[in-house]
Computed example of a mutant assay.
Amino acid sequence: MMLPTQVHLLLVFTLTGRLLRVMGSPLVMDPNSICRRSKPSGGANNELCQTQPEIIQEVAKGARLGMRECQHQFRHHRWNCTGHGKNLGKILQQDIRETAFVNGIMAAGVLHAVTRACSQGDLLQCGCVPSSSGGLNEKAMLSPNPALQDQHWEWGGCGDDVDFGYKISRQFLDTRKRKGISDIRSLIDLHNNEAGRLAVKTNMRTECKCHGLSGSCTLRSCWRKLPLFRQVGNHLMQSFQMAVRVMGANDGKSLVPLDGDVPPLGAHSLIYSDESPDFCIANRRTGSEGTRGRVCNGTGTAPGACDWLCCNKGHTEHTLEYEENCHCQFQYCCVVQCERCAVRKEVSICL
């Protein structure tokens, strides 16, 4: 598995307006790569590349953020959101639920990174959200703290400008559909992109600060802040586990669940149209690298367990020996000193 600092990622965005295309070798998700692959589509993306490169920097950070979270969420799964050569590209060319998750987490990552850059003052095009006025019912509804319903509070502080991040995420990641054509893949991609962005917006949290004499809290000023991106990843992982298989409707412009007993599609659902391969065995056609050599843990059928992860092909025990910091102590002033200790660890490896 590649380290986060070695993000040589092959992302397949074959439709116009995507961040990257799969080429003959892995691509680093950097601003230059994004802009080179935006040129064929022209329009607003080209203009941003030429006049506002700082936004492209944040788009690239968001893409890396999304892929790191994908690797975390799938670390115990047979497909662990990594790939070498063209394998990752081949997986993402399929319209499977893993592709749905990647599209969602990438759209969320770009939104999150751009919005955070706005709040930190790294982008001049945006900043804090202006204070909003509204009735108490609206405020109480938005606040996760029921106690606030009985107290007077006002919008204030520095709210995160999630709407600007949303706009940039849509601009770079949403498919530009051709007039009169609505293919199923485009509709699915657009839906999953939006589900990723909604995962950020619906997990926004309200932060408040007390004001009053002698530390009392007679008045609170509150503002909306981004969620931790791990929360967004957890939200989308739940959506992945409940992903809905769809097909094109008779009108050719919409999607419906393949299973007629499933409720109508919600905006937060991740959707797909093809079943996933089992990822047990390396397969060049599907891009599967198999699970041979993966580290597993324990027995059972849960993700990460040896029987499940190794696809019942068995596993072997190995002893890893390495050094790590230990017995760390804080030394006045401001230095932490550690010893190096030898560590032996027993691990199970899939055959």
Rank of each mutant, 00 (worst) to 15 (best):
L9V: 14
P4R: 13
L320P: 01
Y332N: 10
S33W: 03
R18G: 14
G314K: 14
T299V: 08
S254Q: 12
R285K: 14
I188D: 06
L265T: 05
Q337P: 06
D150S: 05
H76Y: 09
Q50F: 04
I281A: 05
L142Y: 11
L190A: 13
F240E: 03
A282W: 06
C126I: 04
G134F: 12
N103K: 01
T82H: 13
K86D: 13
F101Y: 15
N193T: 00
Q57F: 11
L142N: 01
Q52Y: 10
N297H: 15
R285N: 11
S348R: 04
G157I: 07
S214W: 14
L3W: 13
S269P: 02
N283S: 12
N283Y: 04
L136M: 11
T16I: 08
P264K: 13
N234V: 11
D95M: 07
K201W: 02
G260C: 08
E324S: 13
G233R: 05
Y272N: 01
N32R: 14
L265A: 12
P264T: 14
A44G: 01
V7W: 03
P26L: 13
N297I: 06
I168R: 00
P146M: 15
G121M: 10
K167R: 15
V7N: 12
L219R: 14
Q149W: 12
K179R: 10
L124K: 14
Y332G: 04
R205E: 11
G260K: 13
L124R: 13
C310D: 12
H152Y: 14
N32T: 11
R205G: 01
G165T: 03
R78V: 09
Q329R: 15
L219M: 15
T115R: 00
L187H: 04
H84T: 05
A60M: 04
A44R: 06
I56A: 05
R68W: 06
E54P: 02
C310E: 00
N80K: 04
G62E: 00
T5P: 01
E207R: 09
M141C: 11
K179I: 09
R36N: 11
L213K: 13
A108N: 11
I349C: 01
Q331K: 09
G43T: 02
R75T: 01
T301R: 14
V22C: 06
G290F: 07
T99P: 02
Q125N: 08
D122A: 13
C334L: 02
G165N: 01
A44D: 03
I55C: 02
R170T: 05
N192T: 05
T301G: 08
M247F: 05
S119Q: 10
L270V: 07
C328G: 11
A249T: 08
Q331F: 08
T115C: 06
R230V: 03
L48C: 01
W308R: 14
E339C: 06
W308M: 04
Y166T: 03
G109T: 09
S131H: 13
I56Q: 04
P257M: 02
G215N: 07
C210I: 08
R185H: 00
